[in-house]
C-alpha cells in the first residue's frame, strides 16, 4: 500500500522533472530571480557599509540573510503553485484527477517538487553571496536548517491557500501564484524587526511564521544566539497554518467536484 502510494507520488514528480530536464529556460528562470535579488541587495549593503563602516558587516549579514531566507518561502510557495498550474496549462489535470492518485498524495508530490525547486533556485544565490560579498549563510550554524524548514512549510501553507483559490475562482486567481507572498513581505519582518512596525500591526506580523524566523535569524547573526522561543512559535504557527490551509484545500477540491469546476478549470 505504502509502496503504491510512494509510486504515485513519484509519478507526478517524474512528470515535472522530465519537463525541466528538457527545458533549460525553465531551469534558468528558477535561478534568475533569487540571484538578481541577492545581487541588488548585495550592492545596497556594500553602499551602506561605505557610509557607516562600524555596522557594515552586521548590516550585510542581516540584509543578505533576509533576502536569501525569504527566497526560500517565496520559491517554496511558487514551486508548489506553479507545478499545479502547469497541469492546468497543459490540460492534463483531468487525467490526473481520474487516476488513482489521492489528493493527499498529490499535495505530497507538489511539496516534494517545491523542495526540489527551492534547492535549485536558492543554492546558486547562496553560493554567489559567498563569492561576491563573502557572506556565508551557513555561518549562523545548524539553526539555519530549522529556519529553512520553517519557511519552506510556510510557503507550502500559503500555496495550499492559493491553490484553493484557483480551484474556487479558476484562471482569475492565477496571478496570486506570483504576487501573494510579495504582499506579505512588509509584515514578515524580513529586513527589520517586528518592533519597527506600528503597534497595531505587530500582532499581524507575529501571526506569520516568517516573522519569528527572521527575528531568530537576526539574533543568530548579531548575538550568535539561538532564539528557541521564536523557533517554537515559527513551527507552531506553521502547524496551524498547514492545518487551516489543508482543510481549505480539501474543502475547495470537494466543492469543485460538486460544481463541476474540474471539468473546465483554467478556461
Amino acid at each position: 500500500m505504502m509502496r503504491a502510494s510512494a509510486r504515485r507520488i513519484w509519478g507526478l514528480m517524474y512528470r515535472h522533472i522530465a519537463l525541466y530536464r528538457r527545458s533549460w529556460p525553465r531551469v534558468v528562470e528558477l535561478m534568475y530571480w533569487p540571484v538578481l535579488q541577492m545581487v541588488v541587495w548585495g550592492f545596497i549593503t556594500a553602499y551602506l557599509a561605505g557610509l557607516q563602516n562600524n555596522i557594515a558587516s552586521v548590516a550585510a549579514g542581516v540584509l543578505l540573510g533576509g533576502v536569501l531566507l525569504w527566497e526560500v518561502a517565496l520559491r517554496s510557495q511558487m514551486g508548489f503553485t506553479l507545478s499545479f498550474l502547469e497541469e492546468i496549462w497543459s490540460r492534463n489535470l483531468g487525467h490526473i484527477f481520474v487516476s488513482p492518485i489521492r489528493p493527499t498524495e498529490m499535495v505530497a508530490a507538489l511539496m516534494a517538487l517545491s523542495l526540489v525547486r527551492v534547492v535549485v533556485s536558492v543554492l546558486p544565490a547562496v553560493g554567489l553571496a559567498w563569492l561576491l560579498y563573502a557572506f556565508g549563510l551557513w555561518t549562523m550554524g545548524p539553526v539555519l536548517a530549522a529556519f529553512f524548514a520553517a519557511l519552506l512549510v510556510m510557503g507550502w501553507a500559503v500555496a495550499l491557500g492559493v491553490t484553493s483559490l484557483i480551484l474556487r475562482f479558476g484562471a482569475g486567481a492565477e496571478a496570486l501564484a506570483w504576487s501573494v507572498l510579495f504582499g506579505v513581505t512588509p509584515f514578515a519582518a524580513v529586513f527589520y524587526p517586528v518592533s519597527v512596525l506600528p503597534a497595531w500591526l505587530q500582532p499581524v506580523a507575529l501571526s506569520l511564521p516568517a516573522a519569528h524566523v527572521f527575528e531568530g535569524m537576526r539574533m543568530a547573526l548579531t548575538d550568535g544566539r539561538i532564539a528557541w522561543d521564536h523557533l517554537a512559535w515559527a513551527f507552531g504557527l506553521d502547524a496551524a497554518w498547514m492545518a487551516g490551509m489543508g482543510w481549505l484545500f480539501m474543502a475547495q477540491l470537494q466543492a469543485a467536484r460538486v460544481k463541476g469546476a474540474l471539468l473546465n478549470i483554467g478556461e
Partner: peptide
C-alpha cells in the same frame, strides 16, 4: 484532455504507469 506536450511519448506513458 491532453497529455503534457513537451514530454516524450515514453515519458508520458511512464508517468501514468507510475500513477496506476
Amino acid at each position: 484532455i491532453a497529455l503534457p506536450q513537451r514530454l516524450t511519448v515514453a515519458e508520458n506513458l511512464r508517468v501514468y504507469a507510475h500513477l496506476y
